[in-house]
Simulated assay, not measured.
Amino acid sequence: MILNKRRVLLVSEHFQPSTGATAQLMNDLASGLVKQNWRVVVLTATGGPENSTTEDLTVIRLSSSIQSNNGVIGKAMKGTYFLISSLIWCLKHGNRGDVVLIVSNPPFIGLLGTILRKLKNMPYVFLFQDLFPQTAVISGLLPSSGPVASSFQWLMNVICKQAAKTVVLSDSMQTQLVQNLGQAESVTVIHNWAVEKALPIPLAKNPFAIQHGFQDRFTVQYSGNFGRLHDLKTLLDAAVILHANPMQFIFIGGGAKQSQIDNYCKFHSLSNVIRLHYQPRSTLKYSLGACDLSVIGLIPGAENSMAPCKFYGILASGKGVLLIAKKNCDLAQLVLTAGIGLVVEPGESEALADKLLQLSKNPQQVQDMGKRARSLYEKRFGRERSTLSYSSLLKSVR
């Protein structure tokens, strides 16, 4: 009976109908927890249809009418509105026995948990999508030293220490956070999953590749956010080196480094590079498979503070991984030991170009990487496995 079901309040700035990765993951998680016998209430800043309830899933939209750009100040204003609105809703409607699952966007949203814990004795779990303020320092948004970064680090430590549990997305993130906190008991790793996977269609017959005219070329694809923490330059430099070879580089998505791609194409007259906008979810089953290798690029330091969710989609799609990152990080070691792709460090463009040229002449090796990638996903990762982990964790919180 519904009365016997415990309720979880999922606080996520991003949710459907947004097509961003976090929104899709949290939509999957909410519906997955319902299947695990939870009543789920989602508090989100994402606009869309009016508040709705379907079976045991209720979506409360607390979107702001604040008119602002997507800069730091505008995001902070909207984030503050979401924090205050979520707090008011929880104070009015939250019950003892509820557990609050807070997703770390905006970073200070974790304050909600500390307040509810004190005022209503409601326990909370904090989900770190990336380790702020470390990510802001690495990307250059905050100075590495000084009162701003120190204050944010103090705040995040308080949020994590007062949480019943803190969830991170990878072993390296766990190691870094434990080092920051000085304690390990409350930090748990739960991996993300593939929100979509490609259909098993050969590149030569893939309708997305045919539509854009690269079905007959060895194709390297970067799909997702062109963010400040992502290394695109190493891949673009390799594209410059290989411009005379029958090889295609596809960039699908958008973000802060979008102009870097456009500038490279213009300055170097790169006919072997195509940049496309984000694709609707219905197209991903074709676009994700429209390549021979899929790329993940991380600038130095990012490998310990974030976990690229596209990794799981690449594996589930049965594609080999081209990872641009420090070779000593856990993701690089997994790619190498599992034999599912290539690893080069940021700046190793010439070495990357050589490896890509060799692989383009060895299709069987490329296929074998893809098969091992798919097998790895099925054995170690997946939505159902992660949802069950979240459900078990939430049940342990009292």
Rank of each mutant, 00 (worst) to 15 (best):
Q260A: 08
L235I: 02
L232Q: 11
A244W: 00
S223V: 09
T234W: 00
F251V: 14
T234I: 05
F208V: 12
N225W: 12
L229C: 07
F208T: 13
F249S: 06
L229V: 12
K257M: 13
F218M: 11
D237Q: 08
S259P: 07
N263K: 05
I250G: 15
D237T: 02
G213I: 03
G254F: 09
F218Y: 07
G227S: 07
V240Q: 01
Q258K: 07
M247A: 01
A244T: 03
T219I: 05
L235H: 01
K257N: 14
A239R: 02
Q215K: 09
Y222R: 11
I250V: 14
Q211C: 10
I261C: 03
Y264S: 00
Q221R: 13
Q221K: 14
H212F: 11
A239C: 03
T234S: 00
Q215S: 10
H230A: 08
N263P: 13
L232F: 04
Q221T: 10
G213C: 12
F214W: 14
L235K: 01
A209H: 10
D262V: 13
F208S: 14
T219R: 14
F226E: 10
Q215A: 15
G224A: 05
V220H: 07
K233H: 07
Y222P: 14
L229R: 07
I250Q: 15
K233R: 08
D216T: 07
V220M: 02
I252P: 15
H212K: 15
D231A: 03
Q211G: 13
F218S: 15
T219S: 15
I241V: 08
F226Q: 09
F208M: 15
A239H: 01
R217Q: 14
M247C: 11
A244V: 02
D216N: 08
S259K: 04
F226C: 15
N225F: 09
H230Y: 07
G227N: 03
K233S: 05
D216F: 04
F249P: 10
L235F: 02
H230I: 02
M247R: 00
N263M: 03
D262M: 05
G213P: 10
Y222M: 13
V240A: 01
F208W: 10
G255V: 05
A256S: 07
G224D: 04
